[in-house]
Computed example of a mutant assay.
Amino acid sequence: MASLQDQLLKAGLADKTSAKQARAEKRKKQKLKNKNKTEVVDEATLAAQEAAEAKKAKDRALNEARQKEVEKKSIAAQVKQLISVNRQSKGKGDTVLNFTHDNVVKRMYVTDEVHKLVTQGRLTVVSFEDGYELVPTPVADKIAQRDQNSIIYRADTAAEDKAASEEDDWYADYQIPDDLTW
């Protein structure tokens, strides 16, 4: 079976130069088509790549969670060490030191000297192993940098809170009558 081009040449409707030009153009078009042709995408390869990316993302998230957990444990260990090394003796006194923890008033029996140091802001009450301990205030500052929830009572911040509440008393300028009885 002869091509259409050969049939046209035999019939005398086309000449050899136009046939040669037509073949050259056809080859050029085919080359351009092959050159610009995109690669055939394999669906299995794509699925494998997507699965690998998903696994990497999951591994990154798990690693990040582990790192945070390790960091949390490290901070807890640092706080525990700071408290255990720097805790001060409460003494065997009869003076009651009252402080609040989670909106509940707690008590600690201390000596008069220790009570004075706490109220002056030199000692701070911190939570330690289901109990409460006293540490120097500079150590409490280091503990607060690591874990603010360990600090239970500080006299110096309580004084600041009291001063702030006094500023909020808009009725403080009014005098209370001397003959008022309750």
Rank of each mutant, 00 (worst) to 15 (best):
S3C: 11
Q5V: 08
L8E: 04
L13R: 13
K16T: 08
K16L: 09
Q21C: 08
R23S: 08
R23Q: 08
N34C: 13
V41K: 06
L46D: 13
Q49G: 11
Q49N: 14
E50W: 10
A51C: 11
A52P: 01
D59Q: 14
D59E: 15
R60M: 12
N63Y: 14
A65Y: 04
A65E: 13
R66D: 14
K68L: 14
K68C: 09
E69F: 08
K80S: 06
S84A: 13
S84V: 06
N86L: 03
Q88D: 02
K90N: 08
L97F: 02
N103E: 02
K106P: 01
R107D: 05
Y109S: 01
H115F: 11
H115P: 00
L117H: 05
R122I: 05
R122V: 04
V125I: 07
S127N: 07
E129F: 05
D130E: 14
D130Q: 10
G131F: 03
V135K: 02
K142A: 07
Q145M: 13
I152H: 01
I152P: 02
Y153C: 05
A155H: 02
A159N: 08
A163S: 15
E166D: 12
D168T: 07
Y171D: 11
Y174W: 15
I176L: 11
P177K: 05
D178V: 06
